[in-house]
Simulated scan of single mutants.
Amino acid sequence: MPSYRVTLAVGALAPGATPDAVLPEAARLVAELTVVEAKDVQLLRGVPCAVVRFEAPSDEIAEAVASHAADGLAATAEVRSAAVTRRDGPRWTPVG
């Protein structure tokens, strides 16, 4: 099954949310729909991002998983953007 990852650019935290809650919550949301392979925090162009790698049978399902994670994470933090990429050999290819 192909590997995908969703990169969620994170903005302001919701009232009462802590920074260390963002990544576990993003991974939990993805895990509601599929198998989580890995999770990480990255700083991309100065913007903190929660990155969750997961399995999906198709690009369409991967995009649905990413949308679910972005929508659900809005209760914890502002999601400025969500990008989905697919693992193609040694590179990550944008989906959508």
Score class of each variant (00 low, 15 high):
D59W: 03
M1K: 06
C49S: 15
S3R: 07
D40T: 15
A77Q: 11
V36M: 09
A75Q: 11
V51A: 04
L13Q: 03
A77D: 05
R86I: 08
E32V: 05
V36H: 08
V52W: 12
H68M: 04
A69G: 00
D20P: 00
T7G: 12
L13F: 02
L44D: 12
R86E: 14
A27V: 09
V10S: 11
V35R: 14
V22E: 05
E78L: 11
H68C: 03
S58L: 05
A31E: 08
V36Q: 12
R45M: 12
D88Q: 12
T7Y: 05
A17V: 07
A26I: 12
K39I: 12
P57H: 01
A21S: 14
A74E: 08
L44E: 15
A62Y: 05
R5C: 04
R45K: 12
V65W: 05
A74Q: 09
V6M: 05
A66S: 06
D88R: 10
A21W: 06
V79S: 05
V22Q: 07
V52R: 08
P48C: 13
V6G: 05
A9Q: 15
L13W: 00
R28D: 04
R91L: 01
T34D: 05
P19E: 09
R28H: 13
L33Y: 10
T34A: 09
S58H: 02
E37F: 14
R45G: 11
T85H: 06
P48K: 12
V95S: 04
D59H: 02
G16T: 10
T18E: 13
D71Q: 11
A62W: 04
V36R: 07
E63W: 06
A14I: 02
A62F: 08
G11Q: 06
D71V: 07
V30L: 02
S58A: 12
V52P: 05
R5K: 15
V47S: 11
I61P: 00
R53L: 07
I61N: 02
A56E: 01
A83I: 11
P24V: 08
A69V: 09
F54V: 00
A66Q: 03
Q42D: 13
Q42H: 15
A66K: 04
T34E: 05
E63K: 13
S3V: 04
L23A: 10
A83T: 15
D88F: 03
V95I: 09
D59K: 02
D40H: 15
A62T: 08
L23F: 13
V30D: 01
V41C: 12
A17P: 00
A50H: 11
L13P: 01
R87C: 00
A12C: 03
L33E: 09
R28E: 08
M1G: 10
P19W: 07
T18P: 01
P24L: 11
V41Q: 14
V35K: 14
C49F: 09
T34P: 06
V79M: 06
K39G: 12
D88H: 02
D59F: 01
A27Y: 04
G16D: 07
P19F: 10
E32S: 12
R53P: 00
T18D: 10
T93G: 00
V6A: 07
E63R: 14
T7H: 08
G16E: 09
G89R: 14
A69Y: 02
A69M: 04
V36Y: 10
R28L: 13
V35F: 13
